[in-house]
Design a protein around this nucleic acid. Structure first.
Lengths: 106, 106
DNA sequence: TATATTTGCAACCAATCGGTTTCGTATAAA
DNA sequence: TTTATACGAAACCGATTGGTTGCAAATATA
């Protein structure tokens, strides 16, 4: 069972759920109302998001509130961090490499 | 055909390719040497990464150099941006909601 | 020119994914 | 206590995924 943050956010419905929940914690039924698919399909998405810890649950009677786990979202940001210096530099890195290769041949 | 940045980075091999290429532009053969799977499998990953514009190609004779497209990586960062204020706040948002609900019932 | 190298593409296959329907359980309401 | 509601779990299904092998095209080299 692959329960990976990146795999979790790959699905557009799950990203929509994240967006929905970010504003306010919600129950599965309330979330499902925002989508065309069945409650069970949404529930499956919630399971995946919860298993990779992107969502946290809080039981309140027979209802379960799902909310976003900021800590885990931060992990994606940490992954991106290592590439920021690349997209912030204006150099076209490939052009540089090719230039080097071509010069070596001469 | 779903060619989505989020779907592209969902695969761990593709993330490894991104990491590899980030340092320096490389050819498919050179990239494939770093993995256990066949060259064709890696080539498929490169196609997916290129189609969603995470990678750029530059032909040099019969060789093709792949490099990271920072602009597209930035898009993921832009998506994350909207959640940053959430994970930076110390409040447990759910607790607040539940508290409000409980108070209403009284 | 003949041969080797680099690469992409197509066909195929098992595993996984996202969806459905059906069911069981726990809590709230009548 | 009986009935309704909220939810998760399981079984099933077609589509997609990530891998393979085999092949064709283009470029470099002998």
């Amino acid at each position: 069972m692959r329960r990976d943050v990146f795999q979790a956010i790959a699905d557009p419905t799950r990203r929509a759920i994240i967006l929905l929940i970010a504003a306010q914690a919600m129950t599965p039924n309330a979330i499902a109302e925002h989508f065309d698919s069945t409650r069970q399909a949404v529930s499956k998405h919630l399971r995946i998001l919860t298993e990779c810890e992107l969502l946290k649950q809080e039981q309140s009677g027979r209802e379960i509130y799902y909310q976003l786990n900021g800590t885990k979202m931060k992990e994606i940001d940490k992954w991106l961090e290592q590439y920021k210096k690349i997209w912030e530099s204006r150099f076209n890195q490939l052009d540089e490499v090719l230039l080097t290769l071509k010069n070596k041949k001469k």
